[in-house]
Each structure stands twice: as C-alpha cells, then as structure tokens.
Computed example of a mutant assay.
Amino acid sequence: MITVEHLTKRYGSTLAVNDLNFTVAAGEILGFLGPNGAGKTTTMRMLTGYMPPSGGTATIAGFDVLEDSLAVRQRIGYLPETPPLYREMTVQGYLHFVASIKGVSAGERSPRVDWAMGRCGLSERRHQLIRKLSKGFRQRVGIAQAIVHDPPVIILDEPTVGLDPKQIIEVRNLIKSLAGDHTIILSTHILPEVSMTCNRVVIIQKGQVVATDTIDRLVSQSDNRTQYELKLTGNLEPLQTALGQFPGVDAVQTQSDGDNHVVTVTTAGETDVGPELTALVVQAGLKLYEMNRRRATLEDVFLQLTTTEVTSEDEAFAPETEADS
C-alpha cells in the first residue's frame, strides 16, 4: 500500500531525510519512531503531499506523491501534530466542511460525519463550538477529520497528545479497529502505545532508518538478557556466594540498608530462572518479600538506537518543529 524508496529531503545544506526505504502492507499499523529532529514529521509531510521530496520516490496506493499529488491526498487521512481546526465552527459544521473539500458526495456527507463523530466520541458535542472544547476533545475532532472521507491510508502524528488515560485507551482501540480496512502510520513518543497498537515499527535517527521489524524481533535482537529484582531481609553473604556459582548469571548488583537489601540479578538468555533464584534465597536463609522479572522493552531498543550526543547539525532540523508548521 505504501512504498518509500530512497526518499530524501534537503533544507539548504541540511539533510533532514536521508535515503529512507520502507514499505507498509495493506491493513498494517506501522509505528514510525524517532527522537525530536530525526525527520519524522518531514517524512510524513512528503508522504501526504504537503511538501515535495528532494530525491527518491514514495507511492501511496500505487500513486506517486510527486506526480499524482492530488490522487494521493484523496486517499490519505492526515492528523498533523497540531490539528487543522477552525475554532469558530461547530464540530458537526467543521466535519461537514472537511468532508466536502475531501470530495465526499452530498448524499454521503451526513452519514460519514455521523460515523466519524460516533467513532471519536463526539456525537454529544456535535453542536458545540470547537474553541469551547477541551484539548482532548479538540484532538478527537482532529482524528475525526482524518477519517471522515474513509481513506485507505491514515497517517497520525501524535494522536493521543492531550488525552487523559481513559481517552488514550479509547483512541488506541479506535486505531486498532481501523486496521485491516485501512493502512495506518502512527508516529508517537508514547512507546507503550506503539507496543500495544502496532504490527511493526520503523525507527529513524538523523533522517535515516536505523531499524525496521516487528517489536518482538527488535527486542530479542537488542538484548537477550533478563533482570530479576529481589527484595530481601537477612545476611546476604551465603546468597552472594551461591549466585557467583549460578550458571548464566552475568551481573549482581546490591543496595543495602541494614538487613534490608535490593538485589538485581542479570542473567543471559530469556529462560525464566525465577524458581531457581527463589530456591537459592530459601537455602541462604533469607526472607524474600518481592521478586520482579524484567526483560528488554521497545523503550530499551529505542534508546539504544537513538541516544547520541546532540550536535549543531541535529539542531539544524528546524523545519521539524511545530512552530514551522
């Protein structure tokens, strides 16, 4: 459904997007991730026809974003980081206006608007002025305008900004329900949302793809270790001796306050050795109050791939900022 090949964008001497290559299959939800200034928003603007690329190609549903820009825009629903709202209009009036400029026929316009308001929890706010809505409800209006014309491709830039936890869950469920019939690119800094929503992720840094795969594969390739945090009371010496002889233990860290201890044990591999560690604690004569098992997460992978020292070149990616939009 979406194919990006060698996509490049320059701002003068600054290379904001550098030779991007990735694909998104029909019906897939792709997480598009990167730190501030990495080139995410610039990429999404090129995909939506907002700005032309300096090089390379991108096609949406078979149409080239540069040569067939109008056809591409007709097939995309786009929610930018700052929703394009007319605050003096009512929710319903604004969505009717958006539906009309997006080519929804007069006979289909009201049903499409009602559908979009229903999906985004706006039906009871249909006659309210947008300027009187909370930030969370304005964000919902932004999502509604992106889906009102039932596009095959939906591109969402930070769709849960300003929402409370209940609203975040509702938007997450909405996005997941749209998959299958729609191809979705989701850009967000809330990594747990990506883990719970997306089939696959693309991570970019300094305008280049640094990883693309399913979340499970990225996590397993990143760090094949497991950490156990044990909260204990008693004499630690017998346990420390036993852990030194325990196969697969890479590291042991201890924080103590008198007879109270927090011991972090790092083991190689993904095999759960919690029962064996519990047995060692009992044999050592300590009291175990709590044990937590922690494996690598998408956040760990993201930080590993994108944490670099900020340079003046990074700061030059000014067009990525909200102020530029």
Rank of each mutant, 00 (worst) to 15 (best):
Q240T: 15
E158A: 01
D324M: 13
I184C: 03
T41P: 12
A25D: 12
N18V: 13
R200W: 06
R294C: 00
E108V: 02
S220L: 11
R73H: 07
M1V: 12
K9N: 02
F32R: 02
S13R: 15
E88N: 10
G103H: 08
R87G: 07
A318S: 14
T266F: 13
A323R: 15
L70D: 08
H149W: 10
P84M: 03
T183N: 00
L129R: 07
S54R: 11
R73N: 01
Q139P: 03
L186E: 00
Y228F: 06
G118C: 00
F32Y: 10
Q128S: 12
G285F: 08
V113D: 09
A296H: 11
E313V: 11
D324G: 09
L20N: 07
G107L: 10
T278W: 06
L239I: 02
M51A: 12
T226L: 04
R112C: 05
I203A: 11
R10D: 11
M46K: 05
W115Y: 13
K102G: 00
R119E: 09
A26H: 14
D259C: 14
Q74C: 04
P275M: 09
E170K: 12
K135R: 14
G244M: 11
V265P: 04
Y50D: 02
E158V: 10
V148E: 11
V72L: 02
S187T: 03
S110W: 10
G55M: 06
L232V: 02
R294V: 04
V98T: 07
R87Y: 08
T214R: 12
V65E: 08
L303F: 15
E237W: 05
K132L: 14
I155D: 03
L239P: 01
G93I: 11
H182G: 02
R293F: 13
L20S: 10
R75K: 13
L277A: 07
I215K: 08
Q227C: 08
R10V: 06
E322M: 09
T42S: 07
F302T: 04
T233A: 14
I147S: 03
H127G: 09
R75I: 06
G55T: 01
R119V: 01
L95C: 05
A71P: 06
E5C: 10
M1Y: 06
D157I: 01
G34W: 09
E315M: 15
E290R: 15
Q240L: 15
F22W: 13
D272Q: 13
L236T: 01
K102S: 05
R73I: 03
N173E: 15
P275E: 02
S177H: 08
A106T: 01
S100G: 05
S134L: 08
R131G: 09
L236A: 04
K166H: 11
G258Q: 06
T160I: 01
S222A: 13
T306H: 14
G285Q: 13
T311A: 10
T241H: 12
T57G: 02
V148L: 05
G118T: 05
A279M: 11
Q167K: 09
P84C: 02
K135S: 07
T321A: 14
S312P: 07
T23K: 14
T266G: 12
E28C: 08
Q128Y: 13
V65C: 06
I185G: 01
V281G: 00
E81P: 02
R217Y: 09
S105Q: 05
K102A: 03
S123T: 15
A99I: 05
T308A: 09
D150P: 08
L286Y: 13
I203P: 03
L85C: 07
F137I: 08
L85Q: 00
